[in-house]
Design a protein around this nucleic acid. Structure first.
Lengths: 336, 336
DNA sequence: CTGAAAGCGCTTACAG
DNA sequence: CTGAAAGCGCTTACAG
């Protein structure tokens, strides 16, 4: 392993100069820099990250915290963020909570992040009142994506969840639906916080805006994934209340709904219209009408915001857009 | 930030003793250890990773390299591996290639991994002849998952891809199909190496075993994802060759095939039977018959193998299993 | 623009 | 079982 002294000796300069030259600092003559660069290349020198970190105080790492990397939204945000981070010269430390409360607590209340990262990006991280102290004890810059709970001093990147849900439901209303079911995540889930509540509010707002009185019998909690969508839809059907459309809190839940409906011999959209939120990779494949949110863009913007904090505390709101596909149509009753 | 001296002072011992006590090393009396632990806890002491790394030579990090974190198989392997790694006290550095050849080269031929990790886990990493030197120059222990190309000295964890493909195709043959199309990834793709070839071999072996002569007109390359499955199936239909079943190299491609078939008014399984490989999360939802492979288990076993190398060079082969759902049935011709 | 030297905060032989 | 001291390989004031 060649060290900085080897390079210094080969280039005939001090280690301080090697350090400066290699990091592109000013205060090095062009001639010297070239000599150092040559020597370093020739020797295949790479500075020891541990040593640089200890001496320089910067880790060159960013911690990316995500509830479940297996979910479309999260993996898409992480992929985009990772690319931007690497481009900016940072390594990314992945913390996947796996939906476990224990992992969340460990991350927050153990030194898992202390001195390991220069900054933190938290995606859809639910933070309870007692967690804020832990986060601020980190004394780290950070950014939240699709938060969750805004962290004081950290910018946040997200969409307007109220509007997204409203758009989805208003689309159904526009088609003539009035009995619109809602399937959503459990309140205890990872997205349970503002996202959950906001999308619920959007649903209610749309209904009220059209003079439709929300019916609790049409709203059912499941999980946020496919299985949850199936279960919620089964429960809905079990209740026996009439409905002509389903609004799902996310596309994965919508896919679950689609599955459950088909199992019961119900056709989409002939018997039931279905709309989700996300624009999941598979949404075009199954013809799902949805409100698209820019997942990758949120990841990129989060990194950008983290690295050049122009909006210290502000929120970056990214646009969503309704994409009408084949899963929604006018209800049969209005056709009859 | 409290340092090791602070703890040493508070406990009335030397820093060497603090270091030993905190890391659970032997050669520390129980009484002293308790005193140190108390002091550390009281002061909220956490050892500086940079300093430990520099002094100790271990980074406590494992690099996880993956072609595309957004794909089902990869995110599932990573989730499981990440959990095991964190349990074992390692941080995970994520390297998502994003399907870019440039990222692959940068990772291999730059110091991206040098001195940053204690070990490497490469998932479905395509390695060309010229890459091996770069990998061995890393001088790091490693493991490959679903390789790809086996790396000398690194154990590998995977399934028997030949058998998986054979099982899928034999299932179709058992139902009476003889015109079985194959849609697969491009040879230039991430899984292009052994996985691609093995599954191709399995398909051919199954056909030959049944006395069916492979027809090149029935085999079409696409991408490995949904869009690729759509495109490949469109191409297949465009060719106008008769077929009653499709074997897809992975479930995501199968979902693409399903989409394309539906668009063309073809029903599954009435008009066309469809089988994939994976048992993707969404496979049950769409009733896809598939050969299940244990993705999470591969992630866990890889970590296990990496951390306690009992099989220095050997391959861990995990079992697959055919899961029959609604996407496969006897061909109509045999029913007529 | 360049160098000598201290220091970052640990771990590890080496003694005892 | 415990401690004094060197050393890990850089970066950073401080001089010049």
């Amino acid at each position: 392993m060649t060290r900085i002294d080897d390079v210094a000796r080969a280039a005939g300069v001090s280690t301080a100069t090697v350090s400066r030259a290699l990091r592109g600092l000013p205060m090095v003559s062009e001639k010297t820099r070239r000599r150092v660069l040559d020597a370093a290349a020739r020797l295949g020198y790479i500075a020891s990250p541990s040593a640089s970190r200890l001496a320089g105080g910067r880790t060159g790492c960013v911690g990316v915290v995500v509830p479940r990397i297996t979910r479309w939204f999260f993996s898409t945000v992480v992929e985009a963020a990772e690319e931007s981070l690497h481009e900016a010269g940072y390594d990314v430390l992945l913390f996947n909570l796996g939906g476990s409360e224990q992992a969340r607590l460990k991350l927050l209340h153990t030194g898992a992040l202390r001195q390991r990262v220069d900054a933190v990006m938290m995606i859809s991280m639910p933070l309870l009142a007692e967690d804020f102290a832990a986060v601020s004890r980190l004394e780290l810059p950070g950014v939240t994506v699709s938060s969750g709970t805004p962290v004081p001093g950290w910018p946040s990147v997200r969409i307007d969840d109220v509007a997204a849900a409203r758009d989805a439901v208003e689309h159904l209303i526009g088609l003539g639906h009035t009995r619109i079911a809602r399937i959503c995540g459990k309140s205890s889930d990872e997205l349970a916080f503002t996202t959950h509540v906001d999308r619920q509010d959007g649903y209610h707002a749309a209904l009220r805006g059209a003079g439709i009185r929300p019916d609790p019998a049409l709203e059912v909690e499941g999980a946020l994934d496919l299985a949850g969508g199936v279960a919620a839809t089964e429960e809905l059907l079990r209740r026996g209340v009439p409905f002509s459309a389903i609004y799902a809190i996310c596309d994965e839940a919508a896919m679950g709904a689609l599955t459950a409906l088909r199992r019961h011999g119900l056709r989409v959209p002939e018997d039931v219209s279905l709309v989700g939120i996300d624009d999941h990779d598979l949404a075009p494949a199954i013809g799902l009408t949805t409100v698209a949110q820019p997942a990758a863009e949120q990841g990129r913007r989060a990194v950008e915001t983290l690295l050049s904090p122009t909006v210290p505390d502000g929120a970056v709101l990214l646009p969503t857009r309704l994409i009408i596909r084949e899963s929604t149509a006018a209800p049969r009753s209005t056709l009859e």
